[in-house]
Design a protein around this nucleic acid. Sequence first.
DNA 1: ATAAATTCTATCGAGTAAGTAGGGTATTAA
DNA 2: TTAATACCCTACTTACTCGATAGAATTTAT
Lengths: 139, 139
Amino acid sequence: MMSKKCKYAIKALIALAEHYEQGNLFTADISKAQNIPKKFLEQILLELKHAGFLGSKQGYGGGYYMKKNPAEITVADIYRLFDGNIALLPCVSLLRYESCDDCQDEAACTLKREFAKIREQTRLIMVNTTIQSFLTQEK
Amino acid sequence: MMSKKCKYAIKALIALAEHYEQGNLFTADISKAQNIPKKFLEQILLELKHAGFLGSKQGYGGGYYMKKNPAEITVADIYRLFDGNIALLPCVSLLRYESCDDCQDEAACTLKREFAKIREQTRLIMVNTTIQSFLTQEK
DNA sequence: ATAAATTCTATCGAGTAAGTAGGGTATTAA
DNA sequence: TTAATACCCTACTTACTCGATAGAATTTAT
């Protein structure tokens, strides 16, 4: 299960993607429309901005807007930002590899072998699902 | 990432599967061989027993043994037992469905639509990976 | 200038889970 | 009767989750 933070982030990105290249949205409006606690949402939008997905304008009339193309923001990106590794074991993580402290012989480890396969399947579908995917009506 | 508990469970099951229908193993021996804290392992083996995967024999010379066929114990089973839902959102969980508290119109929710696809892909590979999969040497 | 609206920052707090460790009871074989 | 083992319960520390609180900084409208 993903964290609520991650889910809220995706919902906010979808809302902002619906106004892509059409100016900014207020945190307060997104908060109301998506049922996300406002102060929590502030933190989330800020993190998304720092990560380069969003831009912002401060002060009166300010707000957040999509900076990257929604078709180029993947669920894998957002999941990694808020919830960490896609891989189920640290030793099969693509971007954040760590050895398992209880592992004797990593090269021969059959857990690593099988969980690498699982990670790759999971990764592929999460990379192929983008913010744009949530906008289309078609099935 | 899965919990250490879940990973330890899989490692213990593999060790026991290697002695399938060849008597029992001691908790202490599995603990040493797999680098799993003994007291933690006790709880894990007990849970696996209560879930029907293992059998046990008490007293002197007792221990745990595989009860189910290793080829019929899937990673999905173990993950669900220790770490919960495979689905990333409660509303797309196959076995433990719950509605999202922030969702307005679930039927029209595109998060549900896309995350249902992700859940199904993830589920399939986790169901197709069994304890037996970790035993085979071939690639 | 002043006030209002907004982003930005930092911190705090309750609740829950993760990862153990400790101590004791029940059962069995030698 | 003793030792080895499964079984069971509790407690502990650490970290994370889901927010709430309290403002500071910035921009615009008036």
